[in-house]
Design a protein around this nucleic acid. Structure first.
Lengths: 223, 223
DNA sequence: CGCCGTAGACTTACAGCGTATGCTTACTAC
DNA sequence: GTAGTAAGCATACGCTGTAAGTCTACGGCG
């Protein structure tokens, strides 16, 4: 009896903040943010919900933690990279990471969080811009604009129902609800999407912004 | 007794979907999305929570409904407006509306919803672009990029802690947590923000995108 | 007049949530 | 051994959305 409980605890890998957060990411990746509850998380770790509180402060702490871990996965370009290439690479990497963890974009946007992952990400971004000749104010504007596109685009993308391949069925049902004569342009666009499918292009807007930044920063188009 | 209950029901303005949704917007405006619960909503309407279900399907229906009402408040430019002016005006109006209802941006991004307000908004957007010479694909890309900036920028703006005026205190406390030698650029930027305060500029990125669209669409720079 | 169908408000109840509080257990240092 | 500490457990509370069933007031009809 006492040996059984002893072996139970011994057999179980010890909990840790790291393990809690990694498992939380697993859970969110598989079932969405809604299925990330303290009870389910504990269950997956073979532990009661309340035991988690020995390693994390509360659920908000978990959310902050997993956001920072995910942000830490974004490739940031090293010092010396030309600012435009750096921003392009960084944005594309961030876009991929956010698509891999569909819950993450919304979380990043809905909490103010400065963990190591976020700080590293931010420092690399601002650094490449400053090295590229941007003033502090220009770098702030550029960062803000690049991230607006990144988050805005990704959220819209994730928000659309179903995957790209099923769009046509959904469009058809949507089309039925739209009075064609009242909203001709929506009608036209949905009809087109039914034929050709969805095709959002993250890099279209990204290059628009990058080219604009190059023109506005004026100088140092080449490093 | 019976007269009292009778007068109670008579005295109370009758519930309706419209009244439920308007009150829900009030509640969310005042206390954030978190304080919009069925019980509180019923309470404010002088009714039990379950009575609301006679007028709305469920809470998701309420969320869809208030998003659509808010989107309906966005000024959309009439046919005939030059596409660039139209997109500029529309984006700025949307930005203002989303700031006036701080919970709305996140809701718009987290659900797929095609109510009358959204359809009207979308049709006007696509319409002005198509009239301005954009092909269907170009109009889709342009719409997507403009809205990415709109939602991404607004969400970042709303996400920052506290109002613009209190930023300097917050920055100071954040600065204390950042190792200056490890993250020099973050350090530099926060130091600057402490001095001059926050100053995000929605129209900076907006004009960047608009100018880029003008160049890419090539033709019809003037209507 | 009485009756009755119906719409809408009410009551109760349930499962699930985050987490405060107070145990019990296991291990480490002396 | 024994005391101290860290960590897991059990219980309980208030909150959420909402399913299910009940009550009541009103309009139409005989």
């Amino acid at each position: 009896m006492s040996t059984e409980t002893a072996s139970n605890t011994a057999r179980r890998a010890p909990l840790s903040r790291e393990r809690v957060l990694r498992t939380a990411i697993e859970l969110a990746d598989q079932g969405g943010l809604g299925s990330l509850t303290m009870r389910k998380l504990g269950q997956r770790l073979g532990v009661e919900a309340m035991s988690l509180y020995n390693h994390v402060a509360n659920k908000d702490d978990i959310l902050d933690g997993i956001v920072d871990l995910v942000v830490g996965d974004i490739d940031v370009p090293p010092a010396g990279t030309h600012w435009k290439a750096a921003m392009r690479q960084r944005s594309i990497s961030a876009h991929q990471v956010l698509l891999a963890h569909p819950w993450a974009a919304m979380l990043v946007m809905s909490r103010f969080n400065i963990g190591p992952g976020m700080t590293r990400y931010l420092d690399a971004t601002l650094g490449r811009l400053r090295e590229g000749g941007f003033s502090i104010e220009e770098a702030l504007d550029a960062w803000h604009t690049l991230d607006s596109h990144l988050y805005g685009f990704t959220l819209q993308e994730l928000n659309l129902p179903f995957g790209v391949e099923e769009t046509q069925n959904v469009s058809a049902s949507v089309l039925g609800q739209i009075p064609a004569e009242q909203y001709p342009y929506v009608f036209e666009v949905i009809t087109r999407i039914m034929q050709t499918g969805r095709d959002e292009d993250f890099e279209f807007g990204l290059d628009l912004v990058l080219d604009g930044l190059e023109r506005i920063a004026g100088r140092s188009a080449s490093m």
